[in-house]
Amino acid sequence: SELMNSSKLIRMLEEDGWRLVRVTGSAHHFKHPKKPGLVTVPHPKKDLPIGTVKSIQKSAGL
């Protein structure tokens, strides 16, 4: 199965306009000026399962 580095996923979010608002432990929480909701990324993780990545991307509207 495909894995993604959390840094790469965070870069994709930031390029889309998401900004880090809070860190709780290894959970990084992002908000967007125009899009609704809060997106949480486990970080640092070298090997996020593709299912997790897809669900984060979906929440972020990517």
Rank of each mutant, 00 (worst) to 15 (best):
S59R: 11
K35A: 03
T40Q: 08
K54L: 06
T52F: 12
D16S: 05
K31V: 09
K31F: 07
H43C: 04
N5Y: 06
E2C: 10
A27N: 14
A60L: 04
H43L: 02
L3D: 11
F30Y: 10
I50V: 14
G25D: 15
D47R: 08
P42N: 05
K46L: 15
T52G: 03
A27R: 10
G51V: 10
R19A: 10
G51W: 11
V39E: 01
L3H: 12
L20D: 02
V41W: 01
I56A: 02
P49N: 09
G17L: 03
H43F: 04
K45M: 11
K45Y: 07
L13G: 00
I10N: 02
H29V: 14
S26A: 10
V41C: 04
V39G: 01
I10E: 02
P36G: 08
I10A: 02
W18H: 00
K54A: 10
E15D: 15
V23I: 13
K54W: 04
G17Y: 02
K8G: 10
H43T: 03
R11I: 09
L48N: 02
M12T: 07
D47P: 06
G51R: 08
G37F: 04
P44V: 04
G37D: 05
V23G: 04
S59D: 11
R19Q: 14
V41Y: 00
I50N: 10
R22H: 14
H29E: 15
G51I: 10
E2T: 07
H32N: 05
K46C: 13
G17W: 02
A27W: 12
L20Y: 02
M12F: 07
E2F: 07
L9F: 03
G25Y: 10
H32W: 00
E2H: 10
T40K: 12
V41Q: 00
R22T: 09
L3C: 12
K35P: 00
G61A: 04
V23K: 10
P36I: 07
L62Q: 04
G51Q: 14
R11E: 14
I50S: 10
K45W: 07
H32K: 01
V53Y: 03
E15V: 08
L62E: 03
V23F: 05
H29T: 15
H28E: 04
D16T: 04
V23Y: 06
L48R: 01
G25N: 13
S7A: 14
V23Q: 10
V53C: 04
K31T: 13
G37H: 07
R19W: 10
L9V: 08
T40W: 14
K35E: 02
S26Y: 10
W18F: 03
L62A: 04
A60D: 02
D16N: 06
W18S: 00
G61L: 03
L20G: 03
V53L: 06
E14V: 10
L62Y: 02
K34N: 13
K35S: 03
R11H: 11
K8M: 15
L3G: 14
V53E: 02
